[in-house]
């Protein structure tokens, strides 16, 4: 039980009066890869944004229920602190255009004015880039702007930026949707390596990708959690008819 790093309990999310997430209950184990599947518009992004308290940035947004990170209610803490412990990578790569690669990786510290010794920050940059499998390609260009990298490399730079904060959880919101197949498969490999040191939650509407990368899968449908279980079980013997229909491509 203590293995559950994230617990979502009776959770609701709204935009204005529209209920986007309806009574979600989920428990995620530490250092696993979990994928969230579902047709577009079903609330996957909203769920991720609730987990690192980005949902509330929208004007009319609010939530009900609990999300516990290591048994602490994230909605009872400063949102900034939660966001530093739960990293997020977005659909489109968004490195900071005004910063070089080095500063992009260390941005979480710089922007939060967390003072680091030069040797410490060098180490964090190198480790994060190695973890994101980008070190070899950029080690000689650390002081060039990140915007000249290819799309896949930019996305890995964003992953390195999130990893540099040494988060407990890494959220990837369709992080491969804008990439070519080669870059996609590289990122998928990366997820496999990373899940030994960090819990990863991947949103995707690519069913095959969910099967390839995740240990557990949650299936969302119009704001409700339909099914959650080991990826193998859910794919071979879905319990709900809607899950089965989605997996066999009947809708979505």
């Amino acid at each position: 039980m203590e293995n559950d790093i994230l617990k979502i309990e009776n959770f609701y999310a709204y935009y204005d009066t529209i209920c986007i997430l309806n009574n979600i209950n989920l428990k995620f184990k530490k250092n696993r890869a979990i994928s969230i599947l579902g047709p577009s518009g079903c609330g996957k992004t909203t769920l991720l944004r609730c987990i690192n308290r980005m949902h509330e940035l929208a004007d009319e947004a609010f939530v009900k229920g609990k999300i516990l990170l290591s048994d602490k209610d994230i909605y009872a803490t400063e949102p900034m602190l939660i966001r530093r412990r739960i990293g997020m990578v977005f659909q489109n790569p968004n490195p900071f255009p005004t910063m070089n690669i080095y500063n992009n990786v260390i941005a979480g510290y710089k922007l939060n004015s967390i003072k680091l010794k030069r040797s410490e920050s060098d180490k964090i940059v190198e480790e994060s880039l190695i973890k994101a499998d980008l070190w070899e390609q950029v080690r000689d260009n650390l002081y060039k702007r990140g915007t000249f990298l290819s799309g896949g490399q930019q996305q890995r730079l964003c992953i390195a930026r999130a990893l540099a904060m040494k988060p407990d959880i890494l959220l990837l919101d369709e992080a491969t949707a804008s990439l070519d197949p080669k870059a996609t498969s590289n990122i998928e490999k990366l997820i496999h390596q990373l899940k030994h040191s960090v819990t990863i939650i991947v949103v995707t509407h690519n069913i095959a990708q969910a099967a390839r990368v995740s240990d557990y899968t949650a299936f969302l449908y119009s704001g409700e959690l339909i099914e959650f279980g080991k990826t193998g079980d859910l794919f071979t013997t879905p319990k709900d008819k809607r899950t089965e229909e989605y997996l066999t491509g009947k809708f979505g």
Binding site: M80, L81, N112, I124
Partner: peptide
């Protein structure tokens, strides 16, 4: 240790 340092720092910042 780096992480602990960071979190301590953050709570003070709150």
């Amino acid at each position: 240790s780096c992480k602990d340092y960071r979190l301590k720092n953050l709570d003070k910042q709150g």
